[in-house]
Design a protein around this nucleic acid. Structure first.
Lengths: 197, 197, 197, 197
DNA sequence: TATGAATGAGCATTCATTCAT
DNA sequence: GATGAATGAATGCTCATTCAT
């Protein structure tokens, strides 16, 4: 009971789209390009995805699935709460740097430029941030502004990620040290924030 | 030495392009549209600008001119160095929020997706960051990592700006308070960084 | 002798097609749309109808069935022959105005632009005109040009109908009065035609 | 000072469009088809005509120009008023039969299926009908319902024309006699109408 | 019977760019 | 300097139709 050579065209469409996203970006991505890459007709794309936005939405969903899955499966039984928070940040950062195409459509698309991401799917998108919140609560249990703080951490991470991906960070700066240092500061901020603020 | 009735078509092209950029965004900006707006032929655009990328580069340059100009003209004679640093951040943030389309082409375009921004123009682009560095040196004269710190501040600001512009920040969060709070933390970080690190 | 749950898919296809024809028009009617409406696959449509033209022919046939049925079932036992003729005209006119999309495919499609309407089906199409002929014979029994006259009446009715449907008739003209008046003239013509001509 | 081989592309586009309209009809007319026929690129069509509707509108205008011109230039100094009216009808009929493509877009397009014909152009479209009105006033000066009557005549002519063009008229009917006979009746109607009504 | 996956050609429209004048 | 005519390739998307299962 062998698989046909075209194991799963839907899958192939998603994969090729992702691949193309990396070097073309969302704006220069076209259905025809994808169909050429996949080796099928344009019509076939439309058979699996109602339109271009729906196809991109499917990829966004995948991205959140993968990222949140990684975040939830951090193995750190003996780690201190603050070590866990730091690992969460690392996982977020690493996911972004390893999957710039996912990251771009997940966090950089301006809503006015494409159909609104369906509301029901937003829950998963929010899950990532909730994990930050939870970890902050654990690391600094006396504070109650974990919601606020999680956004601070997130925006900081996002800034580093996007400027690195846009190649705007001076090459003299050691990327790894920079991130570690930034995370140190984030950690510190969070503790003070929760203890004091 | 009279001016021709069309004082400066090149100027007019840039002005109209800027205007169009602001309400259409870079991706919906077309040469034809610009020529229609300016009231000249497409050919004329190509007379002054080799191609679309060159025109966009000119816009990027203008963006930096405007922003750096604002940063350099902060009037704060009696302000403390740290107040000045804070104002610098504010000016950067405000420029970004008031000119999202400029900000996007200045900081979010991925270099592999368009003709390389000419090396000589990068100097002006770097000038903005140098102003941060200088302000940090003043505010914390004993440290020597102002280069590093300026990048930290910058990435933080950039993260907030881009997530706000992509409408990813929860609406429950008061934008103004969030930014002020973030700036407080940035300031604090910088001083400790410079004093201690 | 139980019916299958899908009593008659062919019937359902025709019904949905008719429904769609009415609010979309023949040109915006697509096989896919029909299959979606019916709840079957496109293949199923092709199982019952060789191609789109055949399906449209079936619709034309239905149109003639409905119209001729109405014409034949005029209840007017005590009416004079000329009153009956007038009613026949009214029924024709009303059918056309109530079912513009039907009327269009029945009478306005140019034969060179689609597969020839099958010869055997033309009989029913002609039936409508024969009813006019019969009525004219009754109303003016002495003439023998009822064939000719029926065409005159028909073309007149058709002209009014199509110009009304194309919204070319001045709005100041009261549609109902206009038609009544036209019918008066048609009647008058027919009598004279038959008596004199 | 010889003409270039492409005397006037705009003209050629209009001519080819007209030619294609004859056997394809408005619904199966495509810009690509036209460009192929003309031997130019699609872009060239769009250089001369903003879009498909504008191109068709230009043809409609041409049609009215030609038809009204013919109607206005009837030479009939010694003719009686009723002879003049009859000639007007003849010219209308002949124009329609000789130029079915013009006639179709001039009088059969349903407004919901394309952009509204620009209001300012309607004046010329109405001119044709006004000529009928004037002729009726001359032929039957005592009546005052020439407006109404002109519509009657027009609808009658239109019905004959469209059914002939759709090849719905029985071949046994002699087209020329049929029209003459119909015109007789129309004439008669008009006189009575005006005298009596 | 009925399906669903797939195709290839088509649609109107827009684009950056060229080039003779 | 500046124009305007022209192109070829691209865009997202829809279509009638086929066919192995």
């Amino acid at each position: 009971m062998a698989f046909s050579p075209e194991i799963d065209i839907r899958r192939k469409i998603l994969d090729e789209t992702r691949r193309l996203l990396i070097d073309k970006g969302i704006n220069d991505l076209s259905i025809r390009m994808i169909s050429r890459s996949v080796g099928c007709s344009v019509g076939t794309i439309y058979f699996y995805f109602e339109n271009k936005d729906v196809l991109v939405h499917a990829l966004i969903e995948e991205g959140f699935d993968i990222m949140v899955d990684r975040q939830e499966n951090i193995k750190a039984e003996n780690a201190t709460p603050s070590e866990r928070l730091r690992q969460l940040c690392r996982v977020y950062f690493d996911f972004a740097m390893e999957n710039p195409e996912y990251y771009e459509i997940m966090f950089s698309l301006k809503p006015e430029r494409m159909a609104r991401y369906p509301a029901e799917k937003y829950r998963k998108a929010r899950r990532s941030l909730e994990l930050f919140e939870d970890a902050i609560k654990d690391a600094a249990p006396h504070g109650d502004n974990s919601f606020y703080t999680s956004h601070l951490i997130w925006t900081f991470l996002h800034g580093i990620i996007t400027l690195l991906q846009a190649e705007r960070i001076d090459r003299r700066i050691d990327r790894s040290k920079f991130v570690d240092n930034a995370l140190d500061k984030i950690m510190h901020m969070c503790l003070r924030e929760s203890e004091v603020g």
